[in-house]
Amino acid sequence: MAETKVERLNEPKYNPFTQQELPACKPLLVPKLVVITFMFIGTLFIPLGAVCLQASSEVVEYTKRYDDLCVTGATNSDKEANLLATSGAGTDCQVTLAITEKMKAPVYIYYEMHNFYQNHRRYVKSRSDEQIRGDAAGAMSSCEPKVYTGGDSKLEVSPCGLIAWSFFNDTYSMSMNGQNLPFSEKGIAWTSDRKEKFGNQEALNFNDIPEYRGGGTITGPVNENEHFIVWMRTSALPTFRKLYGKIDQDLEAGSLITVDIDNRYNTYKFDGKKKIVLSTASWLGGKNDFLGIAYLTVGSICFIFGLVFLGLLCKYPRELGDVTLLSWNKVAKE
């Protein structure tokens, strides 16, 4: 009886990839290889951690909290009430930063927020990327619960959503030793964000009613407001910094930097904190010792394990394939 050839549907072509016949490396973890691996990782990571810590130590940074200085009140509830009484105008205050170590240009200005969860799922999803790009037909449903302004006049908000509506609106001006200290507020946002993610449309009904205001206002084309673009890139942790400006001159040691603050943003409602930060940068970025400490810790542990295994290998040597020394009782007797 002749065999009939059955044609199988969607059968993959025969090749080493689909049949899992590609050559593979299967290292045998003999004691010498384990010792060499641990020693190599330790020798590599320890100097790398030292370099990272050195780069972080070169960063000069000064931080000053100001939310508790700009509004009077015994509790956060009292401070919130006093801030809301200004109907969105905010309160004025000053903080002084004493520069004890020279800061080489560029010096970056950040505002730092505490206890603000920009990573909350509902908060992150409350935006319309199509609308931000200037697409008039962009979906608005994703902006819930902030699609319209409050009150009786349900006016459509553009840009809509909780992220945009909570836009940070404190402002700063600076002087050094009594003289005006200029700083640039351009070039603080990602170029790709300015050119591709934000359109040149005008903001519509965006926080222009003080009693319903959740944050700052926007004037002019959306893609020209770099503070807003920086704010819209949400942070992963409840404590974060966002770039506000850049000072293009050196700050000499012994200088006094006075920061005039227009305090508007309501952090008192959620027991948050606000800080002003001046910082330089290294090739590794801002001041952060975590990476260097992590490299040193892992490298040191690997190096110690390598020495321990090397000692055991020297004391209890065995040939490859010799299983006689695998019995702990025999090793203990010897």
Rank of each mutant, 00 (worst) to 15 (best):
A2P: 15
K5S: 11
V6D: 05
E7S: 10
R8G: 01
L9D: 03
Y14K: 14
N15T: 15
T18N: 15
E21A: 14
L28Y: 09
L29W: 14
L29C: 08
K32E: 07
T37L: 13
M39K: 06
M39V: 10
G42C: 05
T43F: 09
L48K: 04
C52P: 00
L53A: 12
T63K: 14
D67I: 10
T72C: 00
T72H: 07
T72F: 04
T72P: 00
T75W: 01
D78I: 08
E80P: 02
N82T: 10
G88F: 04
D92H: 12
Q94D: 12
I99K: 11
T100W: 04
M103Q: 08
A105M: 06
P106Q: 03
P106C: 02
I109K: 03
E112D: 07
M113C: 09
Y117N: 08
Q118P: 10
R121L: 06
R121H: 06
R122F: 02
Y123G: 03
S128D: 00
G134L: 07
D135V: 13
A136N: 13
A139F: 03
S142L: 06
E144F: 10
Y148M: 08
G151P: 03
S158T: 13
L162T: 10
S166W: 02
N169K: 04
D170E: 04
D170Y: 07
Y172W: 09
M176N: 08
N177T: 07
N180V: 12
K186Q: 10
D193T: 05
K195I: 12
E196C: 05
E196Y: 09
K197H: 08
F198T: 01
N200I: 08
N200D: 15
E202Y: 15
N205W: 14
N205Q: 08
N205S: 10
E211W: 10
G214H: 12
G216W: 04
N225C: 11
E226L: 10
E226C: 11
W231F: 07
W231G: 01
R233H: 06
S235R: 15
T239W: 05
F240G: 01
K242A: 02
L243G: 02
D248S: 12
D250C: 09
L251K: 08
E252S: 15
E252P: 02
E252A: 15
A253V: 09
S255D: 13
L256D: 12
L256I: 15
D260G: 03
N266R: 06
K269H: 06
K273G: 11
V277F: 04
S279R: 04
L284E: 03
G286Y: 07
K287I: 10
N288A: 15
F290P: 00
G292M: 05
G292E: 01
Y295D: 01
T297E: 00
V298L: 07
G299W: 04
F303H: 03
F303N: 00
L307K: 01
L313N: 10
C314G: 11
K315V: 13
Y316M: 02
Y316P: 00
P317W: 06
R318H: 12
G321H: 11
G321A: 11
W328D: 01
N329L: 12
A332H: 07
K333T: 10
